[in-house]
């Protein structure tokens, strides 16, 4: 047991904490839940006396998760559009491909998927998405090099709408450039993309992609994106790595944005709809 935990417990009159709680608190900290939230979770668990420690922690953790529906919303009348946003290197392009594959293989019958390459900034991002689209035989739409991403989005929607009369089974996945939430120009550019799409068809989901190894900064990212573009769901990527994605719980709890997907590997099928149970097990795993 680390000195720190003993120390904090002594200072905050927590001498009564059992070794088990202390151990779990450390585990929560190591899963990137942050000090305040970890503390809250431990305190709440201690108040539950009729269960063993692990069960108590699990139920408290589950209590911090939203109970709302985590399914993707869909446009019943026309084209459904999903916009993928996030900071650089979080895994947006790979997730876009996985999402397409998920839509094809899940319950949606005869889904037609269109990929819009709106990351016109990063070198070769467009061709990366194109490669994925070819592998999965998806309709791929891109603009000129360094084109205005909002213009690409606009023509993508127009394209699909004009080619197909009834677009109710059509999905447009819009991959955007990575941008740090603190870069106001780039965030404004993202707002413009969303405005543009919204003029033609509703944006059904704005999915914020967060690297599962992200630390406390994840909350700052989510806050700013939420404020500017109304994020409707979180995606945790690289969850096959060493990160536990605990920051997502902090985000869901504080900003009420549901986690919708867990992404784990490099192949198109490595995507699972979020499950509270599995997520909690992972958080507590050593």
């Amino acid at each position: 047991m680390a000195l720190f935990t003993r120390l904090i417990s002594a200072l905050r009159n927590r001498a009564n904490d059992s070794a088990e709680f202390i151990e779990i608190e450390q585990q929560l900290l190591k899963s990137d839940l942050g000090i305040a939230l970890s503390r809250q979770i431990i305190e709440k668990s201690k108040a539950i006396s009729n269960q063993d420690v692990t069960t108590a922690i699990r139920s408290v953790l589950a209590g911090f998760m939203l109970t709302s529906n985590r399914e993707l919303s869909k446009n019943s009348a026309g084209l459904t559009s999903y916009v993928i946003v996030g900071v650089n290197g979080s895994g947006k392009t790979t997730f876009s491909a996985k999402l397409a594959n998920f839509l094809i293989t899940s319950k949606v019958l005869n889904a037609n998927i269109h990929m819009a390459a709106c990351d016109t900034f990063r070198a070769a991002a467009v061709s990366q998405l194109k490669t994925w689209s070819e592998r999965l035989s998806l309709n791929f739409i891109s603009g000129a090099d360094n084109a205005d991403p909002a213009a690409v989005a606009y023509s993508a929607v127009k394209d699909v709408q004009s080619k197909y009369g009834d677009t109710s089974n059509h999905f447009l996945i819009v991959d955007t450039a990575g941008r740090l939430h603190t870069n106001s120009d780039l965030v404004a550019e993202l707002e413009k993309i969303l405005r543009t799409i919204n003029k033609l068809t509703p944006v059904n989901e704005v999915l914020l992609v967060i690297d599962g190894s992200t630390g406390q900064n994840g909350l700052a990212q989510a806050k700013l994106f939420q404020e500017k573009v109304k994020v409707t769901g979180l995606v945790l990527t690289k969850m096959d790595g060493q990160g536990k994605g605990g920051i997502a719980l902090a985000i869901e709890n504080e900003l009420k944005i549901p986690i919708k997907f867990i992404s784990t590997g490099e192949s198109a099928t490595d995507l699972e709809p979020f499950s509270v149970d599995r997520y909690i097990s992972r958080l507590l795993e050593d």
Binding site: V87, D211, S213, T214, G215, N217
Partner: peptide, 15 residues
Amino acid sequence: LDAMLGQSAADVAQN
């Protein structure tokens, strides 16, 4: 190393 990484960074780097 991505400066935004959290707790797992130390283990990853050590690995």
